[in-house]
């Protein structure tokens, strides 16, 4: 049986550290391109999905 955490924010990727705060792991990227790359890698590693909050913050959520 597969056990995992679902429907929670597993990681946050941002280009603007000012906009995030809290207990999830935060990955700070220098630009949008790097943020997308980190997002792709994290989504594959965590088998999860990247969502865009449209303010330079991306969250990785497993559904």
């Amino acid at each position: 049986m597969e056990v995992g955490i679902k429907e929670t924010i597993l990681a946050i990727i941002t280009t603007d550290p000012q906009k995030v705060f809290g207990s999830s792991p935060v990955f700070i990227a220098k630009d949008k391109e790097e943020a997308n790359r980190i997002g792709l890698l994290l989504s594959r590693i965590l088998k999860a999905m990247v969502h865009d909050l449209e303010n330079g913050v991306y969250i990785v959520v497993k559904h």
Partner: peptide
Amino acid sequence: MNIGSPEA
């Protein structure tokens, strides 16, 4: 749904 990845 909301999709973040530009490739996707």
